[in-house]
Amino acid sequence: MQLRVRALETILTEKGYVDPKALDFIIDAYETKIGPHIGARIVAKAWADPDFKNGLLADATAAVGSLGFTGRAIHLIAVENTPRLHNMVVCTLCSCYPWEVLGLPPVWYKSAPYRSRAVIDPRGVLADFGVTLPVDTEIRVWDSTAETRYLVVPMRPAGTEGWGEEQLARLVTRDCMIGTGLALPPGAVP
């Protein structure tokens, strides 16, 4: 693949369609600047600041925009987990994912097992991630079939009362913002 891709880039560059420096910039941005640490900061702020959480759930694009991250998270919708409701996000048709707040999706999110099963067997998928929810918890699966993007706001772990946003953010994993995981317990981070 390396040779094939290099040939394609050579042709596109020689013809002036792409600028390798622009490609370098994009790769660097997704490798070093845009990733799930952004979503974790958003969730931690929502846990710590009820006004921000209300704004996030009402208009996530505006609320996230107010924090000044690199890319503008257009058409972003935040959905909140509660003891009665667990949200989970999938794109059965391709790989739609909130890049601006979570970075590029992991391989499993784009894989046939996840895309096929999330909508018909979400509890089975959660079991693959080691997550078991109470049998009466309602599960809501969001299939991202349009340009809207979903960010799950996981439940704040018990025992984190009084924690600051930076400390809280360390409990927020990528998977818990997709809905295939839960936030880490307070003892999980040093």
């Binding site: 499993w108 894989s111 046939a112 097992p113 895309r115 096929s116």
Partner: peptide
Amino acid sequence: MGGMHGFGKVEPE
């Protein structure tokens, strides 16, 4: 792919 069977378990890396 939604609802298809046979692709196996989800395997996070």
